[in-house]
């Protein structure tokens, strides 16, 4: 019993982290049709920037803020200089963003070296809660909380605000949106940087329990892709369901069938794709 509750909890908290990362990827993917291999780099760089900020000012929240700002700038720069010209060219997008991913990987190595770090979290977020015989690390509860807040906020922005309506209009028909006076350029840039900031947030949060280390970018990137593929590109609900599924499958796979753990993750995904090529909640 404890085993199952523990695994479910771990799965859900990992899923929550994946939601932060994949939610951003899904936005960029689904709304802008950009295949972004740099997404893992935003995650890694986010963690590193927060690490540096926290080591200077010893404030976890300022670390998150710093990471969000820096990564937003990087994302905006990359999109403006290169990606906005590559609409509809998947190959060009893959290669360009992969080039950036390699460059960022190398720069991170130059700046922060090859040692793994862990981001120091505030005292009130460390420790565990005990319920009966079960122990829940508070930090993992915190991650779940962050994911819920972000999910609700994203939903409200997209569905309930004027900006959100403009974003959806831009996605559905950019030309028409431009025609009725939407600044498509600004909106696209906003969506891209929002996705990048979410990845950075995931990186900071993950830095508190998975750590920040070289290679983290390409380690987590496939997970984010799988979530987006399973859930369907551009669907918030899809990213949520996909993250939980991948988080749980990953945990149970590793615990129950260690030798086939990735297989137990990717095989159900293939089964879903066989039935619905656009993912659970994706639109063609």
């Amino acid at each position: 019993m404890e085993f199952w509750v523990g695994q479910v909890f771990n799965g859900i908290s990992y899923g929550a982290l994946l939601f932060l990362l994949a939610g951003g990827l899904s936005l960029i993917f689904g709304m802008m049709r950009i295949v972004n291999m740099t997404h893992g780099s935003y995650y890694l760089l986010g963690g590193y920037v927060a690490l540096t900020v926290i080591s200077r000012v010893s404030n976890f929240w300022l670390g998150i803020l710093g990471a969000a700002l820096v990564i937003a700038l990087i994302g905006i720069g990359e999109w403006n200089a290169f990606l906005k010209r590559l609409g509809g060219q998947e190959l060009g997008q893959v290669l360009t963003t992969m080039g950036f991913a390699l460059i960022f990987q190398d720069l991170a190595l130059v700046i922060w070296g090859g040692d793994p770090y862990t981001i120091r979290v505030p005292a009130y977020l460390s420790g565990t809660w005990q319920v009966g015989n079960l122990f829940f690390p508070i930090y993992r509860v915190f991650i779940i909380g962050v994911a819920i807040v972000i999910a609700v906020a994203l939903w409200l922005v997209l569905e309930r605000t004027r900006i959100g309506a403009m974003m959806r209009a831009t996605v559905d028909d950019a030309e028409m949106a431009r025609g009725v006076g939407v600044n498509v350029y600004l909106i696209s840039m906003a969506v891209f940087s929002m996705g990048a900031v979410l990845a950075a947030l995931a990186g900071v949060v993950a830095g508190g329990f998975l750590g920040v280390a070289p290679g983290g970018d390409f380690e987590i990137l496939p997970y984010a892709f799988v979530v987006v593929i399973v859930g369907g590109m551009g669907s918030l609900k899809g990213a949520l369901v996909g993250s939980l599924m991948v988080g749980l499958l990953d945990n149970f796979g590793k615990a129950l069938f260690p030798e086939l753990s990735y297989f137990t993750l990717f095989a159900p995904m293939a089964a879903i794709l066989a039935v619905r090529p656009t993912g659970l909640f994706g639109r063609a």
Binding site: R33, V35, E90, I229, M233, S261, Y262, F263, L265, F266
Partner: peptide
């Protein structure tokens, strides 16, 4: 298009996962 790209990526990861974990 993008979906083909993503599915081939995921299927490639199946093989990588087996190589890595089996």
């Amino acid at each position: 298009g993008v979906y083909f790209l993503m599915i081939t990526l995921a299927l490639g990861m199946v093989i990588w996962g087996l190589a890595h974990r089996w």
